[in-house]
Design a protein around this nucleic acid. Structure first.
Lengths: 369, 369
DNA sequence: TCAAGATGATAATACGTATTATCATCTTGA
DNA sequence: TCAAGATGATAATACGTATTATCATCTTGA
């Protein structure tokens, strides 16, 4: 059922008569045409100054038209222009996580900055698809009355993206790009992601160089692609460096205790949000960080979690991801299918390593106790 | 000269033949009409659910159309809708301050949260008008190719809003609302602002009650309406309470020294950003805050400026301003000129006073030294 | 003088939706 | 049985601009 809400009522044209200063009718090409004694088509041709297609306009005719335009202050109606043009230059932004709590928004903020910066540069507008209904804490993309097609396509934001939505976007041929890598969904998914495997691997290698022989990954390592990517990079690098490794599903004290008992000297946290819990546990157990135990965060917290501890980790290039997401999106629009296959529509951007102070040489005489 | 940028190339209709998943033609009312065996006009009538005008659609016909719409995910093209002089449930958001530095965005963030929350509730989408060209550090609203008319109207954000733009919005009859009070611009400007005069006056009265007999306003007190409002509230309340008052244009040390020498015992800071400078100056002069001098901030800093000092002031209800701005905007759309005059299109929301710890009883034996 | 090409402008049409006047068919009541 | 009204749907048109096919006139050269 389609109803009007939102306070929109039927448009009432202004009555003729003594000019109420209300919305004046705008000057159109027809007016210009009448004033300068030419046709509307000629006005359009003058405006668009088209030299190709063998179209010619005499100099004096052109001048008459331009004069009329100047006198009236005519400006082409952007709406009509776009209708004849097919593209809106509007790029939808779909965020999965709801607005509340505002923490989620803070998380998106850097991405949005990058998107907005690039949109401004490219002369596009961003449409925040806030009208999508929230259901079970997540926005629904293709719900009844979805307005996803309002825009030329969309950019997807969210830690975890609905697989069904992705498949539908792919099959329907709606141009889109995901901020964050996504697995194929009935076809390759265009994305701009962070290179978690490489960043994680680099930190593992560094730990190996510092003498750590047993390390642990703390986190799910599955679900969102960003988690899986971290674990994959972790495993590959540990295996290559000949370091013994294991995974702890959650940062629970007993799990951490067990890991240390088994000789683990460095923990890699999938979620930087776990830093406070882990450091609190370490303090409770009398473990010095990084003297007794090194702690590495596989990412950077959106907001600082701890003032007094500079945790080793890496920085996710959120702003740059936003910027390039828009580039990829526009690349998709312009090209045909073949070109698109060649185009660079899946990008992983490098993360910058952050040295910090919590990754130190492995303690001696404590391993394999 | 009109050129194409933004990577948008001329629209190429998809050739018939084996379906290349390329950019699909968008679904139109014609498609829906064909699918459900009715005319385009009928589709439009069903969509707009018009009961007036004596238009009737049989229940089963309506259902067939609705089914086709659901199956195809059809959404009306906002451009065409707008051209046919209708609303598209898109609300433009125009921000004057450029995206950079990101500090400006942080400032807008709470407003945007409120806007987005309400847009979600009302089923509207927000269009960030990022395409407006930046000139001299500020966005230009009516530049060549302005897309301000893409939306049903717009919400204005910015500390200082261009007067010429306001006048043009008013005279062209474009529905809009300002977040923050604005002076008339060839007509009343719809706004949702913070009640700075009342909040400032309340703090002045409190200071008077605490025995302060000479107080100073630190800031411009003019330019943006928000500054002028603060100073107006300050003056009125001080005069009414019989308190001597003066204004210091900037928080410069010599000015502050002079004020204290004249017996000022409380300073009211127009810009909370001045807090660090003033407290540093006070510390340098050996003045205890609030023992020797009370400090009041006329607003709340976007990000905390000082950890160790809980400054007395008030909170600007940014989120609520965003919410109500959308309400006012929608109110404008629905009504004619007469109704609009009566509608509540100029709102000042109360600020919540923040007690803090920097406003204390005036020191004795120090006044009028 | 005449055909071919150059020049200049326009009529017609498309883009997708909303609205109104109109038409065709069915129902109702005496 | 028939006129009047009710019901249901559509054809036609408008919104303002861009583009293409077409047309009319002029120029050129032998």
């Amino acid at each position: 059922m389609i109803t009007r809400t939102c306070g929109y009522t039927h448009y009432m044209p202004v009555e003729k008569g003594p000019a109420v200063p209300g919305p004046r009718r705008r000057v159109t090409q027809r007016d210009i045409a009448r004033l300068s004694g030419v046709s509307q088509a000629t006005v359009s041709l003058v405006l668009n100054n088209r030299l190709d297609g063998g179209v010619r306009i005499a100099a004096d005719t052109r001048q008459r038209v331009l004069d009329a335009i100047r006198e009236t202050g005519y400006v082409a109606d952007p709406i009509a222009r776009r209708l004849a043009d097919h593209y809106n230059r509007i790029i939808g932004v779909f965020t999965y996580e709801p607005v509340f709590p505002s923490g989620a928004r803070d998380f998106f903020h850097p991405f949005l900055l990058g998107l907005e910066e690039q949109a401004e540069r490219l002369g596009c507008d961003l449409l925040l698809l806030t009208s999508a209904p929230v259901d079970g804490g997540r926005r629904r993309m293709f719900a009844e009355g979805s307005r996803i097609r309002l825009a030329d396509g969309c950019v997807l934001l969210g830690q975890e993206v609905d697989r069904g939505d992705l498949e539908r976007l792919v099959t329907e041929g709606i141009p889109f790009v995901s901020v964050g890598r996504r697995d194929d969904a009935g076809g390759p998914v265009p994305y701009v992601g962070a290179d978690y495997p490489a960043a994680t691997a680099a930190l593992v290698e560094r730990a190996a160089t510092l003498g750590h022989e047993r390390i642990a990954y703390v986190g799910r390592g599955e679900g969102p692609e960003s988690y899986a990517d971290r674990l994959r990079g972790f495993r590959a690098a540990a295996a290559k460096a000949g370091v013994a490794y294991g995974r702890i599903p959650v940062a629970a004290t007993e799990k951490l205790d067990a890991a240390v008992a088994e000789g683990v000297t460095a923990v890699f946290l999938e979620e930087p949000a776990d830093i406070p819990a882990v450091t609190a546990w370490a303090a409770d157990r009398g473990l010095d960080v990084p003297g007794d135990l090194s702690v590495v965060a596989l990412g950077d917290p959106t907001r600082p979690v701890s003032i007094d501890l500079d945790v080793t980790g890496f920085t996710i290039p959120r702003r740059e991801m936003g910027r390039q997401a828009l580039d990829v999106f526009l690349g998709l629009l312009g090209s045909g299918a073949e070109e698109r296959a060649e185009a660079d529509v899946q990008r992983l951007l490098p993360c910058e390593l952050h040295d910090g102070a919590t990754l130190a040489p492995a303690p001696t005489g404590r391993n394999h106790s």
